[in-house]
Design a binder for these strands. Structure first.
Length: 355
DNA sequence: AACTCGGGGAC
DNA sequence: GTCCCAGAGTT
């Protein structure tokens, strides 16, 4: 589809289905559009409307906002969250008062220079309020474009972001830009929704790559799970001549708090040191038998644990294992009465299989 | 309980 | 440049 066709279809859809009754669309001055855009960055339209109405009553123009105490501004933001945006809004109003004679600037660069306004919000304000031909790239537009062009990858990645901006610029029509900008946001909000997009009602459906592939819901790619930190730990699996296994009660807080598990160490050296000092008698005369067992991996919400178990066959059961409430010898032929860490459960199971 | 949203700030 | 965060709503 040629460039004008894309915008023409979007505009034709807007003329029939676009939103025209939103409060900031009545008398869309840069100030009114600006405030709405900042509120809409964090909150959906239905929630924003009452806040917007109250805000505009209290701060009807840039100077009213600039001259208000910050407390009053924050008070009118109470419940919207992201209070730094209210502070930025307030600061930008003062910048406009002090550096632009109280008149909202009309160039993209000057608007972008204001606190809390980036490339997309600047484009939106100048498009919606002034009819200038700028692209925007908010969450709604990202979704529409990522699907239409089947842009793979998470939009947080700079390369993906760059590609989306390029498409956004490419489709910008030379005229009716305000309607086009509003239409793209409306399409993203009402048709091209994150889940269950209404492709059958979409004016772009016939040429939308993702729709043609049948997988619009796969775009844009979700934020990648952050790579969890990996922790390597060593555990002593102590076995006495009766075949009983030494278990340690973990501290009440932290991972597996209060559960029984194998004594665990940051590295092998610490494990062996503990073995000699805490558990084995006369290591020099009769060193215990050591054997590395298959390592275990366990994923927690905030890290991945790789546990290297070291099986230790002690020559005597009377080790220096002390403090009965924190230590015990477990007879593995019996059911264990108490909480076992998942690591201990798996290790005991593995142990049964190899013996 | 996980995911989302544009811009700012730390690095 | 890149990563992480804010915070309430939505799913």
């Amino acid at each position: 589809m040629t460039q004008p066709d894309f915008a023409h279809r979007v505009l034709a859809w807007y003329d029939r289905h676009g939103r025209t009754q939103l409060p900031w669309q009545q008398d869309p001055t840069p100030y009114r559009v600006w405030v709405s855009e900042i509120m809409l960055q964090q909150t959906q339209v239905a929630t924003v409307i009452p806040y917007y109405t109250r805000f505009m009553q209290r701060f009807p123009d840039i100077n009213a906002l600039a001259n208000a105490p910050q407390d009053a501004v924050l008070q009118h933001w109470q419940g919207l969250g992201y209070y730094s945006r209210a502070r930025n809004l307030h600061r930008a109003a003062q910048t406009i008062r002090d550096q632009h004679h109280g008149v909202f600037p009309q160039t993209l660069a000057a608007v972008e220079a204001l606190s809390g306004i980036g490339r997309s919000t600047a484009g939106a304000i100048l498009s919606l309020a002034c009819g200038q031909a700028h692209a925007i790239l908010d969450g709604n537009v990202k979704r529409v474009l990522a699907r239409y062009h089947a842009v793979a990858g998470y939009p947080g990645q700079s390369a993906v972001q760059r590609q989306l901006w390029q498409y956004a610029e490419q489709h910008v029509p030379p005229s009716r830009n305000a309607a086009y900008t509003q239409a793209m946001m409306d399409m993203g909000a009402t048709l091209c929704t994150r889940r269950k997009p209404a492709c059958l009602l979409c004016p772009l459906q016939a040429d939308c790559t993702a729709a043609k592939q049948g997988n619009p819901q796969d775009y844009p790619a979700p934020k990648p799970k952050k790579v969890l930190p990996e922790k390597q730990r060593f555990a002593l699996v102590l076995r006495n001549p009766h075949g009983e296994i030494g278990l340690e009660k973990r501290p009440p807080s932290g991972i597996w708090g209060g559960l029984w598990s194998f004594p665990e160490y940051a590295d092998e050296q610490a494990a062996l040191h503990a073995l000699h000092t805490d558990f084995a008698d006369s290591p020099a005369k009769q060193p215990p038998m050591l054997k590395h067992l298959a390592p275990l991996s366990h994923t927690f919400s905030h890290y991945r644990l790789h546990l290297q178990p070291i099986l230790v066959d002690l020559h005597m059961s009377d080790t220096r294992i002390m403090a009965a409430d924190r230590w015990l010898w477990y007879n593995t032929t019996q059911a264990f009465s108490g909480g076992l860490s998942s690591a201990a459960q798996r290790l005991l199971k593995n142990l049964k299989e190899i013996t």
